[in-house]
Design a protein around this nucleic acid. Structure first.
Ligand SMILES: [Mn+2]
Ligand SMILES: [Mn+2]
Ligand SMILES: [Mn+2]
Ligand SMILES: [Mn+2]
Lengths: 219, 219
DNA sequence: CTAAATGTTTAGGTGTGACTAAATTAAAGC
DNA sequence: GCTTTAATTTAGTCACACCTAAACATTTAG
């Protein structure tokens, strides 16, 4: 398997997490990977031959067990490298994702497992996402919710984001909403769905769109 | 530039170090990269267009200044990652080269420079090769020689190898000739060019072929 | 229930980096 | 110097991962 195919598996995995339907359609994969649907169709057939996905014409694809394991392995590497970049090389949390996109494709099981030990087996990456163990198992038993789903007067701790883009992470940092920040929802505006909350001491207003990308562990 | 082209530049650089002629011929590059001469010719033309090499028909190629800098940058990354794998992840010295072949192609100047600092700016890799600094400058002012070039009664310290293959490194370890080992040449056999030396306490005999791949810092 | 709109696949094409076989050039031997 | 041998380049293919445009299937709306 090569970088391109690995990126497809990862894309399908991540779309499956959010989607409620079994099969992921061609155009959503294409959109995620900045490619054209026609290219995706071709690749899905190749991945089917390799028994990494099940592909149904006009319905899309779903990962096989083998495909899931492969995807989890890439995600594991991605997140471990992100921890390395942040903790050991002191990159900022909005800088690590891009470099990890490259490092996740390095092929060496031994390297991954030793890196895991070197980092003292971290359970979450710098954006709050859980890191699969060497068997591809994710143990994430935290009671989390999207900020957009929280009710007034509910409080919790910021533990993750749905969007790891640098532009979003920089915005969060600017308004003082970083990993580990305690927050409490003060008000939800019917007008535009924006949310007013306290982050630390300060009161901030957040758009509905932003709130859909912030993960909170409920107290 | 991609992995393939980077490997060409690295190959040409390393062949230039040993060769006395300016231009490196097609077949030696092909041999080094396990490819056919015809493929090399094609690639040399592409690298010429990118001003990374100067290519003369039937003579071969030589790196331009731009090409040299690119090659040195890849070598820098390769050797830094090797140090990382050995010192931080505790790989053995014969295991690091293969993984570094992959890691050397990660594109991020920031990453390379931070890795350099994290490792406390090492000057040599696990096989004794010098590591170029961030400007591509190699400062290797050690008085070294190939073991095969040494005379009887000369002594020194093992500081490097010419051949980083796992099979050769394992052999060296078996006969107790590792980095930092003090040695003294006892005898050179006219019969087959083999060399008899003391490594630590023990007396060992080494073939001419092996001796050509062992670098010694002269006392 | 049918027609239009939307999503998906197929067909055909491109750039890249490899290959083999044939043609060409350079080097070596006499 | 000429001829044989060896190295190199050229010509023609192939696999891969992408693309566009056209054909086709499914979904949605009237
Ligand atoms: Mn990431
Ligand atoms: Mn990737
Ligand atoms: Mn190496
Ligand atoms: Mn390489």
């Amino acid at each position: 398997m090569n970088t391109s195919q690995e990126n497809y598996l990862k894309a399908i995995y991540s779309l499956s997490e959010k989607s409620d339907s079994e099969f992921i359609n061609t155009s959503s994969i294409a959109h995620k990977l900045n490619m054209k649907p026609a290219s995706v169709t071709e690749m899905l057939k190749k991945l089917e031959v390799k028994k990494l996905v099940e592909y149904k014409k006009y319905k899309g694809a779903k990962l096989s067990e083998k495909g899931s394991q492969a995807a989890l392995n890439i995600i594991r590497k991605h997140r471990l490298w992100e921890v390395f970049l942040l903790k050991k090389l002191h990159f900022k949390w909005d800088e690590v994702h891009e470099i990890a996109e490259q490092l996740e494709h390095i092929q060496s099981k031994e390297l991954t497992d030793r890196l895991d030990d070197f980092l003292e087996n971290p359970r979450f990456d710098p954006h709050g996402d859980p890191i699969p163990d060497k068997h591809g198992i994710i143990t994430d038993n935290r009671n989390t919710s999207l900020l957009s789903e929280m009710g007034v007067k509910q409080s919790g701790t910021m533990t993750g984001v749905q969007d790891s883009s640098s532009i979003f992470l920089k915005y969060l940092e600017r308004i003082n909403i970083t990993l580990g920040q305690k927050i409490e929802v003060l008000d939800k505006m019917d007008f535009d769905g924006s949310i007013i909350l306290v982050a630390g001491e300060k009161e901030v207003s957040i758009s509905a769109q932003a709130a859909q990308n912030i993960i909170i562990r409920i107290n």
